[in-house]
Amino acid sequence: MNDAERMTATACDWLAGQQAEMVDCLKTLVDIDSNSYDKAGTDAVADVIVGWLEADGIDVKRISRPESGDILEAWLEGDGSDAGHVLMMGHRDTVFPTGTVAERGYTRQGDTAFGPGVADMKSGLVLNIFVLRALKRLSPLPFPVRALFTADEEIGSRDGTAFIREAASGARAVLNAEPGRISGNVVTGRKGGAAFLIEVTGKAAHSGVSHADGASAIEALARKIVRLHALTDYDSGVTTNVGLIEGGVSRNTVAPSATAQLDTRFVTNQQRLDLLAAIEAIIAEEDIPGTQATIRQTSGFLPMEPAMSEGLFARYRTQAEKIGFNVEGEFTGGCSDAGTTASLGIPTLCGTGPVGAKMHTADEYCRLETFVPRAQAVAATIVSLAAEPLVQP
């Protein structure tokens, strides 16, 4: 056996005996409410993670945040050579409101676990923690390994993105432990997305007495919505959707104001730029004399273009086959932080967490029997990068 094979065997052998502890850790995390806006909850998850890592001698830096959950960054030192690190990522927040755990906390039926955030993505957090612990037993590592635990991915990583960019700087590869697909596959491509708030102002008037004196913000917004929706192109993967609208003061008043929330999705960064330009042109036009519209982006994810995952996925698939399971890559319309690192030109693979499904619903579940093999595949993939570094596209 060469050095890489010995290191892989050591890590995988240790992980093979950790199934029960992984499940116990998952239960602990799921039974802590951690909605994106619940700083106390996401920080409580951070407290637990810090305790687990420090107990195993793994260094953790905690960056206090005034409003969002604190940022955690754990790392393992390399052998001292000037080699780019590998970054693992995961988010501690969930979409479920505080109080959900009291109503329906962690439960288990055989090899299936249920509970708020059990798949998206507290199981992925546990996987990354145990991969770190496995790699800690390999001394020295051929390059540093870092793990970032953020707390606002479900609301667009408005605070976390800057820390992701910093942690990824100089990385040779990124593995994001979002849940594996129900097929057992990993994610090799994701759409990007951006959300916008559109505000239109007009002029109020009595709709019966002085209708002509008014300028309807609602009518202006309606005309813009038709044109915004016309930007959808299913063949290219671009979609636009105004999902919420508000406006007016009464039925018999020409509306002086109206607002809308727009969701957009795209496959490539060039599509994003083209789409934003088209949207801005629509908003700038005065559809109704006397009205004016503005637009503000409220959140966004960059796309994870499939080209950025090809080499890393091939490496992961090879290691998975050696461990004993087959895996393919899938494209998904959902967004994740993997788009941020992929758009930096860093080889990125997503969906490396345990297999799960029905995310963001009361029926969300995680397949517990996938914990160990998928953790082994991540650890083996990381070690394999020492023997043969990836060539970036």
Rank of each mutant, 00 (worst) to 15 (best):
T259D: 06
S210D: 13
I323R: 02
A4P: 00
D43W: 12
M22E: 04
P97K: 04
G248Y: 07
A362C: 11
L125P: 00
T100F: 14
V187T: 11
K322W: 09
G90E: 08
S183W: 06
R165Y: 14
T94E: 05
G333T: 06
A40H: 13
A74I: 00
D24F: 08
L76G: 00
A113G: 01
F143D: 00
L76N: 00
D287Q: 11
Q261T: 13
P303E: 03
T201K: 13
D213S: 09
R62V: 13
T161S: 13
V131R: 09
L344M: 15
R374M: 10
G99L: 07
L87A: 07
G339W: 12
F149G: 00
A320P: 00
A255Y: 03
A220V: 01
A230F: 04
I155S: 05
A307K: 14
K61T: 15
A9I: 05
G156V: 06
L26M: 07
A194R: 13
A281P: 00
G117C: 04
E364I: 04
I164N: 00
A338D: 04
A375W: 01
L76W: 02
T239I: 11
S216V: 10
G117W: 05
K191L: 02
P303M: 07
V118S: 04
A293H: 06
T259Q: 15
D3E: 15
C335W: 12
F371I: 03
A338Y: 12
S384L: 03
R137K: 14
D287E: 15
N241L: 09
F313Y: 12
D111W: 08
G124L: 10
W52N: 01
C12S: 10
S123D: 10
D38W: 14
L385E: 00
L275H: 03
L276F: 12
S216K: 10
A83N: 07
V187M: 01
D13V: 09
A9T: 09
P303T: 03
T239H: 04
I245M: 11
F143N: 00
G115E: 03
L244Q: 12
L72F: 08
F143Y: 10
D263T: 07
V209F: 08
D337K: 02
L148K: 01
T8D: 06
N252F: 10
L275G: 02
Q292I: 11
L148T: 02
P144S: 03
E310Q: 13
T352E: 08
T232Y: 11
A177P: 00
I288V: 15
T259P: 04
E286A: 12
I282H: 00
P116M: 10
T352P: 05
L344Y: 05
M1F: 11
V45F: 07
L197P: 00
R265I: 15
A44L: 06
G105F: 13
K61A: 15
A134N: 01
G248R: 05
S183I: 10
T98I: 13
A16C: 02
K39L: 08
I346T: 13
V131Q: 10
A258R: 01
V95Q: 02
M121V: 04
T259R: 15
T298C: 02
E153G: 05
G237V: 08
